[in-house]
């Protein structure tokens, strides 16, 4: 089989350390030459992030992976895969993703004519501020750069004001006060030098975990014999998904150490951002806002059936129930 594979952001560790070795070496080797892979990434193809799964469904390529959140324009119900603040550790995040997996599979089948192969995490999306903050309350009235709809709505519900700034313009925007805070992965923020222009780091997953979904065009999947299907499913779980999750928690701890200097930084020089602890009370209030405002709004966008299904799966795993009419 000749597979053309479109990977996620080529500059990020998930691609460099897990995706690229898996698709270009491990899977072809494990298949004894039955599978041949042609790998590129969506940014190298200059694809709009919202187009990745649309083109996958059309059969333009065979396999694609990117952040599920990029595709919620076509599938609002997909926002339920990655809800902010409900999973604080990698283990909790994996439990959330595993619970959501049947839902996600159905969504990809119906919306994108695709078969879900794996779901792996980007490091959680934390908050960088160039302003004195001591808790979530302090976000009120601040200008915050968010990516993704649910995060933006959540920030608005917390009283912050969402500002659109592209990733590359964030450092300048933080420095000059176009925004006070910005949400991104701790590792991305470290390597892009956001520590130079911000002072405070709030290490809670305010933007969720940014799950990256790997999927295969459904016609392609169905055209393969059962042996090959089993091989791919097994290999991707043990050689890609499990290792990516296994290092996710460590990656977060390391990234925070690198940004704040509390602990060892394996990726380079440690920086000295102020770590902001979120008090339990503060946190409870944010969860309350999430459960009472943000999630019911999502239920309206996605439809009550999806909300009910979410309650039974993800909701049970993380202990949250959305009240629907």
């Amino acid at each position: 089989e000749e597979l053309s594979v479109v990977g996620s952001w080529s500059s990020l560790p998930l691609h460099k350390e897990y995706e690229a070795p898996f698709w270009s070496e491990k899977l072809p080797a494990a298949s004894d030459g039955r599978i041949n892979v042609n790998l590129t990434t969506h940014n190298q193809m200059n694809l709009g992030v919202g187009d990745v799964y649309r083109l996958l469904g059309d059969g333009v390529y065979d396999v694609a992976m990117t952040v599920a959140d990029y595709a919620v324009a076509d599938a609002p119900e997909l926002e339920g895969l990655d809800v902010p603040l409900v999973a604080l550790t990698a283990d909790e995040a994996r439990a959330m993703v595993d619970a959501a997996r049947p839902m996600v599979s159905d969504i990809y089948r119906d919306r994108f004519n695709s078969h879900v192969l794996a779901i792996a995490p980007y490091p959680p999306q934390v908050v960088f501020c160039n302003a004195e903050i001591s808790g979530l309350d302090d976000l009120e009235g601040k200008k915050v750069r968010a990516s993704g709809r649910m995060t933006a709505k959540f920030l608005e519900a917390l009283g912050a004001e969402g500002v659109n700034v592209s990733f590359s313009e964030v450092p300048g925007a933080l420095q000059k006060g176009v925004v006070d805070c910005a949400v991104t992965g701790a590792g991305s923020g470290y390597s892009a030098g956001w520590w130079e222009v911000s002072t405070h780091l709030m290490p809670i997953p305010l933007g969720g975990w940014d799950s990256v979904v790997t999927a295969m065009n459904l016609d392609k999947w169905n055209s393969m014999d059962e042996d090959l299907q089993t091989l791919i499913s097994e290999q991707i779980e043990t050689e890609f998904e499990d290792p990516a999750w296994a290092t996710a928690q460590n990656a977060l701890v390391n990234d925070i150490a690198c940004l704040t200097g509390n602990g060892d930084c394996p990726s380079g020089d440690a920086r000295d951002m102020t770590l902001v602890d979120v008090s339990d009370a503060d946190f409870e209030r944010a969860r309350e806002v999430l459960v009472s405002e943000v999630l019911p709004e999502w239920a309206e966008r996605a439809g009550d059936e999806w909300a009910a299904r979410w309650n039974e799966s993800v909701g049970q795993a993380v202990g949250v129930t959305i009240a629907t009419q």
């Binding site: 000749e2 053309s4 200059n46 694809l47 709009g48 919202g50 187009d51 649309r54 083109l55 059309d58 059969g59 333009v60 390529y61 065979d62 592209s166």
Partner: peptide, 22 residues
């Protein structure tokens, strides 16, 4: 040079290239 029907991506490409605030 490509075994895949890339031309099917044409419409999406035209949209996302021109729908660009930069």
């Amino acid at each position: 040079f490509s075994p895949f029907p890339l031309v099917k991506g044409l419409g999406n490409l035209v949209w996302s290239t021109s729908n660009n605030a930069t």
